[in-house]
Nucleic acid binder design. Structure first.
Lengths: 215, 215
DNA sequence: CAGGAAAATTGAGGTAAATCAAGCTGCTTC
DNA sequence: GAAGCAGCTTGATTTACCTCAATTTTCCTG
């Protein structure tokens, strides 16, 4: 059951600016649902019948092992889409990391959205495959560096990068413990590659060095 | 450049049985290309304009780091499809593991194949995301167990499982060294969970135990 | 602006898997 | 069917990261 199912509130969509180029022109504008920090968007095993676009905030998509080990397969920031499945069942959990607005596109029965969905699915596939290289073959510094470079790129390539997620989330995304993530942050700081502005935002002071570390 | 570009030979397609349900009925039957063991099907950076279905043999899809570390993101067996990309460039390498026949479906300009391609892309996405959990959060025994269970399922769930790839390939798929893969095989054999019939085929003697180990 | 809890950092020690180093096995080739 | 070699297995040792534990910092809440 949804621990947080009562926390979803539909907002009038006109109150939000269409900041992002509307990718789905033929579709009538969908309402935006609001999810408080930590609330569930969907759960593994639930019936799938929609896909989602982040309006603001951030989302983590993950899987669990029986003993509680967690692997976050992806973070989704404003403008990004997620939630498509190969069949009618969700194979993962999705949660709002912070207060998050999500536009929900329900599949109208019989409607053919494959033209719209394919490029998004392919983008997701490439991302997942690239992340496999990080998890399978890179060490802790390389993983964190790759993560920071990726986050920077997705935020427009600016020096200052916001990290909406906790160290625990970062660890569960990179296949590391929070302690190792923390130690790597400290090492990067000591090397002068990054500055820790506060817990949830860093400044990349040596972008080339960081990029080199990510291989 | 293709190291092995001259080794591709087009075979008359009628010489091969349509063992598999033809997924792409509207498309005229495509010719089958033959790739010898170890030959390249496509390379990272090459222009993409087709997707591929394995007729017989096996394929590895992988990425390399600058220092030669390799991550195999997927193996593809008879009947499986691969090679779709988010843009017009290949982001990975694909090689025949053994003598392999591949049906190549070139994208006719303007043709809309998204309806056919989307389910395949989504299936690949789910597979990749599930593999992220293995690489990020499972130990060596769990990884090998999950790999063997997966290979068994893809070969019809029989006790005897063919492993068309080398220990090196398995290691590069599971994020382990060949030594660790070998040691885990030995441990599984000593526990009576599997039997090593020969280097490239095993028998799963305790399927439930193996499944439990894969979590 | 306390006071308290959660999150993050830092340190010490342990361990799973990597690395280094021999051997062994099972192909291919003549 | 012997020689040669690549692929695999086994053993000894090292190491990167994890685990356990103690602070410290940050962020709530009143």
């Amino acid at each position: 059951m949804h621990t947080h199912s009562t926390s979803r509130i539909s907002l009038p969509s006109h109150s939000l600016q269409p900041i992002l180029p509307t990718v789905f022109d033929p579709t009538p504008l969908q309402p935006v649902s609001f999810f408080p920090a930590g609330s569930e968007i969907y759960a593994q095993g639930e019936r799938a019948g929609a896909f989602y676009q982040v309006e603001f905030g951030a989302v983590r998509v993950y899987r669990l092992l029986a003993d509680g080990r967690r692997q976050i397969s992806a973070f989704h920031l404003a403008g990004e889409t997620f939630g498509f499945e190969a069949d009618t069942t969700h194979h993962f959990f999705a949660e709002a990391i912070n207060a998050t607005g999500v536009r929900v596109f329900r599949f109208a029965t019989g409607a053919d959205i494959s033209r719209q969905l394919l490029p998004l699915a392919l983008k997701g596939l490439t991302r997942a495959q690239e992340h496999l290289l990080v998890l399978g073959r890179q060490n802790a510094i390389e993983r964190v560096a790759a993560f920071l470079v990726d986050m920077a790129e997705r935020q427009g390539g600016l020096q200052q990068v916001e990290l909406p997620m906790s160290r625990m989330d970062i660890g569960d995304y990179l296949g590391l413990t929070i302690e190792t993530v923390s130690r790597v942050f400290t090492r990067l700081k000591d090397k002068g590659v990054i500055r820790l502005l506060n817990l949830r935002s860093i400044e990349i002071t040596k972008h080339d060095a960081l990029h080199a570390m990510s291989e």
